[in-house]
Design a protein around this nucleic acid. Structure first.
Lengths: 249, 249
DNA sequence: AGAGATTATGGCACTCAGTACCCTCTGTAA
DNA sequence: TTACAGAGGGTACTGAGTGCCATAATCTCT
């Protein structure tokens, strides 16, 4: 149902534009009742970003699970989770990007979504930095920097039409932030990194998913996000697939 | 007329809340026709930020006129223009802050306003940095940092009830950004980069056997975090326990 | 299986923001 | 006086979003 609504809506948005499409048009094409639309999407804007809620949950889950003394690296990895969601459906992401660029209402809606990611990152950093020594300030500035860097790399890829890999651009952008802030978000360049050795190498894996659920493996932490009501056999299947895929790497 | 409408609206928002105040209520108190409201304010949200349009014009004007070889300093000064607008009416700013914090619609509207400031700053930096050498990337990251730093200092002052001077906190926050980015937004002031560019992101080491499984249910999204190697039966068990727990609410 | 409870969906009516169109009033220039 | 312009007001409409209730599907327990 969610899927049917999102698909019908997106078709219509591409055909007639976002503002010239009413909710009644959408439910007519999907063949469902009008009331059902608002059960699945709290607003007309939400249908354009059907997977952000799940992705946000994935990001917060990842940040809650991550350990170690590299909070800046952790939030960069969290940003890569978002990137993976975009990269999982290049055509959709590119079309949505074009749509969002020319509809003011969608732009501001996207801002509010991005803001929630930023706050998730900032919350993680704040918890690690503590209150003293400008902890909150540094957390917010670094979170904003990471989001801006991520968005810059992502936009580059979206503007190119979704050709190739967005990872290189985003990695490069995030590296810039990490170079400036060091791994611990220290105050000033002098107090910089001195990165302790033993950092295992891992970039978040590519998304195999493109389904309603997602399983990601970060190092040896497995994060699964699914909708309530998903059959358990399917969850098990996806976890096993994801874990098996990254086991020998 | 503009003034009368803004004043009537703000009174009502404080008395009954933003969402429980209709435009008809506002025009009734102001003693004008409903149609006139939308002549002066394109939306109900605009009446809460009656001076941002002017301030944005001031910022862009300043940036267009500024000279010198210190673009980062220039955008910091531009941010101080915004701060001055807030500081000009402490009571109003504090009340508006409290109102904005608890009304989602106003929060997202404010985001769109802040975004325009950020784009003004980024545009100035982009013009100075040029296209090469990650100019665009640096421009956007620095603009985001300056905005985040400004907002952090401003929020500190607003939360304190508008007592004293917001300048100290904002100056300090902006100094942090300038220390990190230098006056020209160079790529790392003196510091040799922590890790060579393009180095893969480090993922922190893990405690070997800390039992860190967790299943959380947010709405109807289930997020599961577990370590690789956890027996599948145990994962299934925990998911079912968590989902069952929240099923009958 | 079948009664009872729970959930998913549809339908209806309503509020309210925002817009299009037209009206009135007032002041100004010829 | 007429002609005109511009500010304000009124009316009716569209469309998003919500509350309430009816009905169908599904689940649970015996």
């Amino acid at each position: 149902m969610r899927e049917a609504l999102a698909q019908a809506a997106f078709q219509l948005f591409l055909e007639r534009g976002f503002e010239r499409t009413t909710v009644d048009d959408i439910v007519a094409r999907a063949g469902v009742g009008r009331r059902s639309f608002f059960r699945y999407f709290p607003s007309k804007e939400d249908v354009v970003f059907p997977d952000h809620e799940r992705c946000l949950a994935e990001v917060t889950g990842f940040l809650a699970a991550v350990e170690g003394d590299d909070p800046v690296g952790a939030v960069c990895d969290a940003a890569r989770i978002v990137l993976r969601m975009y990269a999982a459906n290049p055509e959709f992401s590119v079309q949505r990007y074009r749509l969002t660029r020319e509809v003011p209402g969608l732009r501001t809606y996207e801002l509010s979504v991005v803001r929630r990611y930023e706050q998730a990152l900032a919350g993680h950093l704040r918890a690690r930095f503590g209150g003293g020594g400008d902890g909150e300030l540094r957390a917010e500035v670094i979170a904003a920097s990471v989001v801006a860097a991520h968005n810059n790399g992502l936009r580059l890829w979206l503007r190119s039409g979704g050709e190739g890999d967005p990872d290189a651009a985003v990695d490069h952008a995030l590296d810039l932030v990490r170079e400036v802030w060091g791994r611990s978000g220290a105050l000033g360049p002098a107090a910089g990194p001195a990165s302790p050795a033993g950092a295992p190498v891992a970039v978040p894996p590519r998304a195999p998913d493109a389904a309603a659920h997602s399983v990601s493996v970060e190092g040896d932490v497995v994060v699964m996000v699914a909708r309530k009501g998903t059959p358990m056999w399917r969850v098990v299947q996806e976890i096993e697939a994801a874990v098996g895929k990254t086991r020998h790497r």
